[in-house]
């Protein structure tokens, strides 16, 4: 598995509207940060999809030295089978020491499969990347639903890592940068084995949890579906959106799409207001990166108070209406 000729970092990117996706741009920054410890080595990226050439120009401005492009219909390129094939082809061309990809809905399937195709296993859900003194990739990642923070050393060449979106900040683009575009010829459509029959989208009410600056979340302590209307009202006041813990979803009070946590959505709002949520590690895995956490919980010993910046240990039925009345005053 070791290849002494391997060099550089390859990012398996995603295209959105003819440009590298936000999560891809973050990984390009992560790749550049690693390359500071690998002088003389290159950052490459593979971009497959519609308007791959346009996306390649943006990637070069974001710091990529070599972009491998594969033109394909967006529907084909958003298929995991196709992106695995594209990543594999680019890895053959680039022979990188490190392969990175974003742990998105697509990446969560593509990266483990790509790692196995490359004869290794994936460093999953990384929140930080570094090189040790032997230039091996070492990653930081949560395990046991976030109860433990692990440092994992990647022993194979190439090493493959899936990075949590928003773990890195994208760098400012510099359109004066030079880079090389290498078009790869690969019929991506022929790689698709699990065929898409139809896509069923459910209109999302209000802002998406992933994009919200303020999230008001409710848990088991709310006692039923009705109080979520109160949370909606508060979220409306703050131009935010409403989330829920697994307990509230499992109880059938709100739809699964609202779930924040390890098995739901990972959110990074500026303010996360947790109402009647105990703060189980699997929930915190989804909201622990919020800039400010505010907790309202009856139980002063609830775990949520270990994570919250501000808290009220009290009955939400009394705390929340007064909180909202006061906010109305203040925001008027």
């Amino acid at each position: 598995m070791t290849d002494s000729n391997a060099q550089g970092v390859l990012v398996v990117g995603e295209i959105e509207h003819g440009a590298p996706s936000a999560a891809t741009l973050e990984l390009l920054a992560a790749g550049r940060a690693l390359l500071r410890k690998l002088p003389g080595e290159h950052l490459s990226a593979v971009l497959a999809g519609e308007r791959a050439a346009d996306a390649a120009a943006r990637a070069i401005a974001a710091g990529v030295d070599i972009v491998y492009t594969i033109e394909a219909d967006a529907d084909v390129a958003s298929h995991p089978d196709a992106l695995v094939a594209a990543g594999l082809e680019a890895a053959k061309a680039a022979s990188p020491r490190i392969v990175l990809g974003p742990r998105t809905v697509l990446g969560r399937e593509v990266l483990p499969r790509l790692a196995f195709r490359l004869g290794t296993a994936l460093a999953q859900d990384c929140t930080a990347l570094d090189l040790d003194d032997q230039r091996r990739l070492t990653v930081t990642r949560p395990i046991y639903g976030g109860a433990i923070q692990a440092t994992v050393t990647c022993l194979s060449t190439p090493s493959v890592a899936a990075v949590r979106p928003k773990a890195y900040d994208a760098e400012v683009a510099d359109s004066g940068r030079a880079g090389t575009v290498v078009p790869l010829t690969l019929d991506l459509a022929s790689t698709v084995r699990a065929r898409l029959v139809e896509r069923v989208t459910r209109p999302v009410e209000g802002k998406r949890l992933e994009d919200a600056r303020v999230i008001v979340s409710g848990g088991r302590g709310l006692g039923g579906p009705e109080p979520f209307k109160k949370l909606e009202e508060l979220a409306g006041l703050l131009h935010g959106t409403v989330g829920a813990s697994r307990a509230a979803v499992d109880a059938g009070w709100v739809p699964a799409a609202m779930q924040v946590g390890l098995t739901g959505k990972t959110v990074t709002p500026d303010v996360y207001i947790a109402v009647g949520i105990s703060g189980a590690s699997q929930h915190m895995a989804g909201c622990g990166s919020a800039k400010t956490i505010v907790a309202i919980n009856k139980d002063p010993n609830a775990t949520i108070f270990k994570h919250a910046h501000y808290g009220v240990a009290g009955d939400w039925q009394k705390v929340l209406p007064a909180f909202m009345d006061q906010l109305h005053e203040l925001l008027r």
């Binding site: 699990a194 065929r195 898409l196 029959v197 139809e198 896509r199 069923v200 459910r202």
Partner: peptide, 9 residues
């Protein structure tokens, strides 16, 4: 999917 599902065969 975050906003629905895909039927895949």
């Amino acid at each position: 999917l975050p906003d629905g599902h895909e039927v895949v065969e």
